[in-house]
């Protein structure tokens, strides 16, 4: 079989498919799990912050920057100064 495919000078396409899938899925799995992580972090950070100050849910920004060696997590919470409700910690 190998002998004939060599004569046909056609590269096997299955190994190409396999390699393309492996590269693509490694990327896609990371994207999906990362977007989940951001959503979870955002929700939990919001819950912790609102225990102490009243915050508009839209004013909580969570961002992850993925670097080669380290990634950074940026959390930006905006809340009003005047009339900010301060609760005693539980």
């Amino acid at each position: 079989m190998r002998f004939f495919s060599f004569l046909a000078r056609q590269r096997d396409s299955a190994p190409v498919a396999r390699e393309r899938l492996q590269i693509l899925l490694e990327y896609e799995r990371r994207i999906v799990s990362q977007s989940d992580l951001v959503a979870i972090l955002r929700q939990e950070i919001l819950a912790v912050v609102t225990r102490h100050v009243s915050v508009d849910a839209d004013k909580v920004q969570v961002k992850i920057d993925r670097g080669v060696k380290v990634s950074t997590l940026a959390v930006d919470v905006e809340f009003p100064n005047a009339g900010a409700k301060v609760n005693a910690p539980a």
Binding site: M1, S5, D12, S13, A14, P15, A17, R18
Partner: peptide
Amino acid sequence: ARGEMLKIED
């Protein structure tokens, strides 16, 4: 077997 289709193992 001819390399034209992904194998089960793949």
